[in-house]
Design a protein around this nucleic acid. Structure first.
Length: 473
RNA sequence: GGCCCCAUCGUCUAGCGGCCUAGGACGCUGGCCUCUCACGCCGGUAACACGGGUUCGAACCCCGUUGGGGUCACCA
């Protein structure tokens, strides 16, 4: 098979949101295509009309978009390609590789039960296999699986895996209404779309021999298969709702950076020595199939969170603004892109694990007047600190150069005059500026706020303190 | 249950026969730095599932056991 250009694909079935495991296989396929300079195709496997929905398609687009995964071809929809499948199904029947079967689901169910009871493998017993039936209303098409021999999957991640053909059933490739079943549709699509590299979840491994048999019956070349281990929940069982958030977009909504999500998901099951942090460019450069692990991995939200903090810290400040803005808006904090916002983000970057935390931390920057925390105000905005605070306010309002060295100079003078340590004066200033006792460093914060806000907040605090002194006296 | 896959710290992993008294990361934890909170820095905790082989030598190779996972649809 021609592998000069690697062609991969991501074929979700639109029956729900894109979950973590699906996102990871999408990323793996995308990365492999990008790494090799190949092509990546998106295809919706929506032959199950009962469960496929447009909402799911939209949700998947949304998730892919957030993750920054783009495709070179598609999206294709299997539901629009029934004529193609029909052609291949007929080809299989004509060549004797498949046959019509009129056994009802109930009959097949009985066969299976009977086989189970006699200790055998539940399977279709081949009633119609040699009948050479013609088409008739409601007949399904079954693939004529070779009764002997074995089919080997030469897995690019795990090595060769052999399946005895006798273990395989005469599986249905077309339903009674003529619509294609999964294995047939996948193979036909992958053939017609020239897919030569299939990276998918472990759970598909048992489908692979069936698909290989289909390729062989059709006389087509077999693509490379690589089965990646699954993503498990904390109890080591398959990821499900009880493990908490599973949809990738839920992490977007919880304030995660897509680069962190991609980094985490890729690193879960793939490694590059001891390296933990990867930018997208690095991932594209370094990703390969050789270092994909063989054992299933447990999804660890704590590590994702730590990685998210790291990506936020490492990102360029202006790049963070578009991610933060929606969270600011959700908290009714009115901010606009620009220098002021960027200054704010700069001070919050090293102390925010998520954009939600960052938005919370940004609140005081955008308030007209900070709301004093009662405890903080009594402790730090009291009469004892009135004189130095007042002096500091005057000095700052009169300074020309509003930068760190000059601010530091002013603080030193006030501290010396009042015989105070820096900590003693920093806390009241912090409360005056933010309303609380936890914030970025006072100097960087003052610079981010800008002189006018600082002076106005300081004056308010001094007034507040004077009022308290008057009330007390 | 049949078939298939997997097996290094709690978790993600490095390791591809000697560099391993097993390294990194998250978590937990002691300390340092310090204007608060963080960041950062230094240190600690903790693993080769078990049993047989092969070999001068095994975390790495083979077999078995145990454990975990997947899959057995007119779902994908």
């Amino acid at each position: 098979m021609d592998k000069t250009t690697i062609i991969t694909r991501f074929p979700p079935s639109p029956t729900g949101y894109l979950h973590l495991g699906g996102a990871r296989t999408a990323i793996f396929n995308w990365l492999y295509a990008r790494h090799t300079g190949g092509r990546f195709i998106l295809r919706f496997e929506d032959t199950d009309v009962e469960r496929s929905t447009q909402e799911s398609v939209d949700a998947i687009f949304e998730a892919l978009d957030w993750l920054g995964i783009d495709w070179d071809e598609g999206p294709y929809y299997q539901s629009k390609r029934y004529d193609v499948y029909k052609e291949y199904i007929n080809r299989l029947i004509d060549s004797g590789h498949a046959y019509y079967c009129t056994c009802t689901p109930e009959q097949v169910e009985q066969m299976r039960n009977a086989a189970r009871e006699s200790g055998g493998k539940p399977r279709y017993d081949g009633t119609c296999r040699e009948k050479n039936l013609k088409w008739q209303e409601g007949a399904v098409v079954r693939f004529k699986t070779p009764p002997t021999g074995s089919t080997v999957v030469d897995d690019k991640i795990r090595g060769p895996i052999a399946f005895a053909n006798a273990e395989l059933d005469d599986f249905i490739i077309a339903r009674g209404d003529g619509s294609p079943m999964y294995n047939l549709a996948v193979v036909v699509d992958d053939i017609t779309m020239n897919i030569n590299t299939i990276i998918r979840g472990d759970d598909h491994i048992s489908n692979t021999p069936k698909q290989i048999l289909l390729y062989q019956a059709l006389g087509c070349e077999i693509p490379d298969f690589g089965h990646v281990p699954m993503v498990l929940g904390h109890d080591k069982s398959r990821l499900s709702k009880r493990h908490g958030a599973m949809s990738v977009t839920a992490y977007r909504d919880m304030g995660y950076h897509p680069e962190a999500m991609v980094n985490y998901l890729v690193r879960l099951g793939w490694s590059h020595g001891d390296q933990e942090f990867f930018t997208r460019a690095e991932l594209i450069e370094k990703f390969n199939l050789e270092h994909i692990g063989r054992s299933a991995g447990v999804f660890n939200p704590e590590k994702l969170l730590a990685l998210n903090a790291e990506h936020i810290r490492a990102a360029g400040t202006p790049d963070l603004a578009p991610y933060l803005l929606p969270f600011l808006k959700a908290k009714k904090i009115s901010a606009e892109p620009g220098d002021y916002l960027n200054g704010v983000i700069g001070t919050l970057k090293p102390r925010s694990k998520t954009f939600i935390e960052m938005a919370d931390g940004a609140r005081f920057y955008f308030q007209e007047k900070p709301a004093y925390d009662a405890q903080a105000a009594t402790k730090f905005l009291n009469s004892g600190l009135l004189a130095p605070m007042s002096k500091l306010t005057d000095a700052i309002s009169q300074t020309e150069a509003f930068d760190e060295p000059s601010l530091e100079e002013i603080f030193k003078k006030v501290m010396a005059d009042a015989d105070l340590k820096f900590g003693k004066i920093a806390q009241p200033v912090r409360v005056a500026l933010t309303g609380g006792t936890v914030s970025p460093g006072v100097f960087e914060m003052m610079i981010a706020l800008g002189k006018s806000r600082v002076v106005s907040r300081l004056k308010d605090a001094v007034a507040f303190m004077e009022k308290n002194v008057a009330a007390a006296g």
